[in-house]
């Protein structure tokens, strides 16, 4: 059980940092500062962060930034990155054109 209000008190308010403008998620252009602010708004999980900011939702599906975002969230929450669950993995593992996706032999039965 996680008491969100208590945890927010524990981590204190968001304080601006010099590198807040560094891009973290290139696909969706999300900065470090946006991620840090989201944590202080109560977004503690990778799922909440990505739903709130779209980080990791672009073409690379978080392959590049997943670990970086995890590190930032962990630091803000003052926990080890190992305590932050990675976001879920979804098919398709590589972005695939709709016309190719549609060609799976299933059309004949519809």
């Amino acid at each position: 059980m996680i008491d969100i209000q208590e945890k927010l008190k524990e981590i204190g308010p968001y304080v601006e940092a010099a590198d807040d403008d560094v891009l973290v998620c290139r696909c969706e252009e999300v900065t470090k500062g946006e991620i840090r602010q989201a944590v202080h708004a109560g977004m503690f999980t990778m799922e909440e962060i990505r739903r709130y900011l779209r980080s990791g939702m672009g073409l690379c599906q978080g392959q590049t930034c997943g670990k970086l975002v995890k590190g930032i969230v962990a630091r803000e929450l003052k926990v080890s990155p190992l305590e932050i669950e990675p976001a879920t993995s979804r098919a398709p593992m590589r972005p695939t054109e709709m016309r190719i996706m549609a060609q799976d032999g299933g059309g004949a039965n519809e």
Binding site: M57, G58, L59, Q61, T88, R90, A91, P92, P95, T96, E97, M98, R99, M101, A102, Q103, D104, G106, G107, E110
Partner: peptide, 24 residues
Amino acid sequence: VSAGCRAIMGYIPLLANAKIVRTW
């Protein structure tokens, strides 16, 4: 996902080359 793509393309043919990035 494949069935969905066939249905969508049947109504919006222009999306044929749009890439699916995620399903859930």
